[in-house]
């Protein structure tokens, strides 16, 4: 596989906060056009890794390449969408004003309607974000991160606190976008979501334990359930 086929290429990345190593030699490769699941428990380094991919953090060691370019590269960020864990929006602006603002800072003017229709919020476009329910805010936040039609979408636990029905809806959207050629990296600690990814990376204590499709990981661990596979591969790495 050539470097041009990779949307994300992280090699041996280390990030320390004081004495804590949030990332401890993590490496992963995400191919263009796939939905990649970054799976791991809380505090395993998922958010640190994602924040590094948008240049919010610099690695202490190792290299990070996004869409074939070395970070930091601000212009590259116009092609990347980033959805933070918390729905980071302006509560006193309307849904549409929020989306329009994030489009504008990424150099886009249109696409607002498409983005809002994608997350079923076009009818609520005039509502102030402060008046929305949690699930609607999550969807609005998603619209903000994809309104500029990024080639790479980084979603940090997008379905936390989202009800099953909406979760299914969101995953349908992710699959649609991937089918349209976009690359999506989703972090999660929910195993049943992982089944919907093309490939998975299991992360623990700042290291990638294993990478592969769901079937591959199950086969490698010799178990039926993904959860068991994760536990077994963790033990194997620790031992």
């Amino acid at each position: 596989m050539s470097a041009a086929d990779l949307a994300i290429d992280v090699a041996g990345v280390v990030k320390r906060f004081g004495s804590l190593a949030a990332l401890d030699g993590a490496s992963l490769q995400v191919r263009r056009g796939e939905v990649y699941g970054l799976l791991g428990p809380n505090g395993s380094g998922k958010t640190t890794l994602i924040r590094m991919l948008v240049g919010l953090l610099d690695p202490d060691a190792g290299t990070v390449q996004v869409l074939g370019r070395r970070l930091p590269d601000l212009d590259l960020l116009a092609r990347v969408g980033y959805m933070t864990q918390q729905a980071a929006l302006y509560p006193d602006l309307s849904v549409e004003e929020n989306v329009r603002f994030f489009a504008a800072i990424h150099g886009h003017q249109d696409g607002v309607r498409e983005a809002l229709e994608l997350v079923d919020l076009w009818d609520r476009r005039r509502s102030e974000v402060a008046t929305l329910s949690g699930g609607m805010r999550t969807r609005c936040s998603l619209a903000c991160s994809l309104v500029h039609e990024p080639d790479l979408l980084l979603l940090d636990e997008p379905t936390v606190g989202v009800d099953p029905q909406l979760r299914r809806q969101l995953w349908d959207r992710f699959r649609q976008m991937a089918a349209g050629g976009r690359t999506i990296l989703v972090s999660s600690h929910v195993m049943d979501e992982a089944e919907r990814c093309d490939r998975l990376g299991l992360i623990r204590s700042g290291r990638l334990l294993a990478e592969g499709t769901v079937a591959e990981l199950k086969a490698r661990a010799g178990v039926e359930r993904l959860e068991d596979a994760f536990l077994k591969l963790s033990e194997a790495a620790a031992g």
């Binding site: 240049g55 212009d75 960020l77 980071a88 509560p91 990424h106």
Partner: peptide, 14 residues
């Protein structure tokens, strides 16, 4: 506090 600065920082904004 509301996290939007992080979003601005993860955009092409200088």
């Amino acid at each position: 506090g509301q996290g939007t600065l992080e979003r601005l920082m993860a955009s092409p904004l200088r």
